[in-house]
C-alpha cells in the first residue's frame, strides 16, 4: 500500500478501496472498523465455495479532515465486482449508525459545535449492486442503508465519491442517488442498469456495451456533470477527491439540501421536468442532450482535458 503522501497524487482509479479510505482523510487519522484482522468473511460465499475476503470487499472506518470527523465507506470493485452482501452491507449500515450517533451526541453535549466539527459520511462506491450469491441479505442491506440515509438527513451530510473502474450500478445506483452530494471523476460511471444488462435485455442495436464511448457518454462522469446527476467533477487523484470532501465538510448540513436530487416535492417536480424534456426532445444519444444544454460541439467537449471541459461546459438547466 502506498504511503499517505504518495496517495494524494495517486490515481483514484488505480487505488484500492483501503487506499482510497486512508487517503481521503488526514494523514494518520484513519481507524478501520471491522478490518481484515477481524476476519469477517461472508459465510454465504464460504458455503458456496466462492473465494472470500477478510473485509468482505468493503472498507469502513473513521478519520478526520481538519476538525471534521469523516466516516468512510469504501467498496472494493476487484472483489466480486464490489457486490454488496450481508457482511459488507452490515458494515455500511453500522458505520452510518455510528456517524448519526456521534452527530446526536455532539448536538446534545456540544450544541455550539461549529459546522466543521460535525461529522460527515463519505462513501466511495465501486459496485454493481447486490451480491447475487446472497441476494436477500444484499437487498436488505440496500434498504437498510437507504433507511439510515433518511435518519442522517439534516444531521450528517452523506457524500458520494465515484471514480473507480466498476462505477456505481444496480441497486447501489439508487443508493448513491439518495445521498446529499455526488463527486465524480471522468472515469467514474453512475447508473442503475449496467451496460451489459441493458444490452442483454434490449439488444445490441439499442445499447452496445462493448462501445465504451457510448457507455461513458451515457453513464460517465462528464455526462453526469452535464445532467446534474453529479454535483462536482474532479481530477482522478485521491487528493482531488479529498479536497472536494474537505470543501464540503466545512458547510452547514442545511447547505446540502440544495445539492440533493430527490427527497422533496420541489425536487420531484424538477425530476419530472427532466422526464418531460426527454419526452419532448426524444434524444437518440447523450450528445443530443449536451447540445440542448448549450454545448455546440459535444464530441470535442468529451475529449478535451478535464480543466478545459470544466471551464467551458454548459450544464443542463431544468
Amino acid at each position: 500500500m502506498s504511503k499517505w503522501s504518495t496517495l494524494q497524487d495517486r490515481s483514484f482509479l488505480e487505488s484500492n478501496a483501503r487506499e482510497r479510505a486512508i487517503g481521503i482523510v488526514d494523514e494518520g487519522t484513519f481507524t478501520e472498523f471491522a478490518g481484515p484482522l477481524d476476519r469477517r468473511t461472508s459465510p454465504h460465499l464460504e458455503t458456496l465455495g466462492e473465494a472470500v475476503e477478510f473485509d468482505d470487499g468493503i472498507v469502513t472506518g473513521v478519520g478526520k479532515i481538519g476538525k471534521t470527523p469523516v466516516f468512510v465507506i469504501s467498496q472494493e470493485g476487484r472483489f466480486i465486482g464490489g457486490s454488496v452482501g450481508e457482511v459488507g452491507g452490515a458494515k455500511m449500515v453500522a458505520t452510518l449508525k455510528t456517524a448519526i450517533a456521534l452527530a446526536d451526541r455532539i448536538a446534545k453535549e456540544f450544541p455550539k459545535a461549529a459546522d466543521d466539527e460535525k461529522p460527515v459520511v463519505a462513501i466511495s462506491f465501486e459496485t454493481g449492486g447486490v451480491r447475487l450469491h446472497e441476494a436477500n441479505a444484499g437487498l436488505l442491506a440496500h434498504a437498510e442503508v437507504m433507511d439510515q440515509f433518511q435518519r442522517a438527513r439534516g444531521k450528517v451530510p452523506v457524500i458520494t465519491l465515484i471514480g473507480s473502474k466498476v462505477g456505481c450500478f444496480g441497486g447501489m445506483g439508487f443508493v448513491a442517488a439518495a445521498t446529499d452530494a455526488i463527486v465524480m471523476s471522468e472515469f467514474g460511471r453512475l447508473g442503475l442498469t449496467g451496460p451489459e444488462v441493458i444490452e442483454q435485455e434490449m439488444g445490441k442495436d439499442e445499447f452496445d456495451s462493448a462501445d465504451r464511448a457510448l457507455v461513458y457518454r451515457t453513464t460517465g462522469g462528464r455526462h453526469k456533470y452535464v445532467m446534474g446527476d453529479c454535483n462536482f467533477i474532479v481530477a482522478d487523484t485521491v487528493g482531488a477527491f479529498r479536497a472536494q470532501v474537505a470543501e464540503l465538510a466545512k458547510l452547514p448540513v442545511s447547505a446540502f439540501e440544495a445539492m440533493r436530487r430527490i427527497g422533496s416535492a420541489a425536487l420531484v417536480e424538477k425530476q419530472l421536468k427532466g422526464v418531460a424534456l426527454a419526452a419532448e426532445m426524444q434524444p437518440k444519444d447523450a450528445r443530443d442532450v449536451w447540445k440542448h444544454a448549450g454545448n455546440a460541439d459535444p464530441v470535442a467537449l468529451a475529449n478535451v482535458p478535464l480543466d478545459a471541459f470544466k471551464a467551458t461546459v454548459k450544464r443542463l438547466a431544468l
Binding site: 500500500m1 484500492n16 478501496a17 478490518g35 481484515p36 484482522l37 476476519r39 473465494a51 472470500v52 475476503e53 477478510f54 472494493e76 476487484r78 472483489f79
Partner: peptide
Amino acid sequence: HFGVVGSGDLEVL
C-alpha cells in the same frame, strides 16, 4: 495485511 482477492489474485495477512 496486503492485497485484494480479485480474480487470479489473493490477500495475505
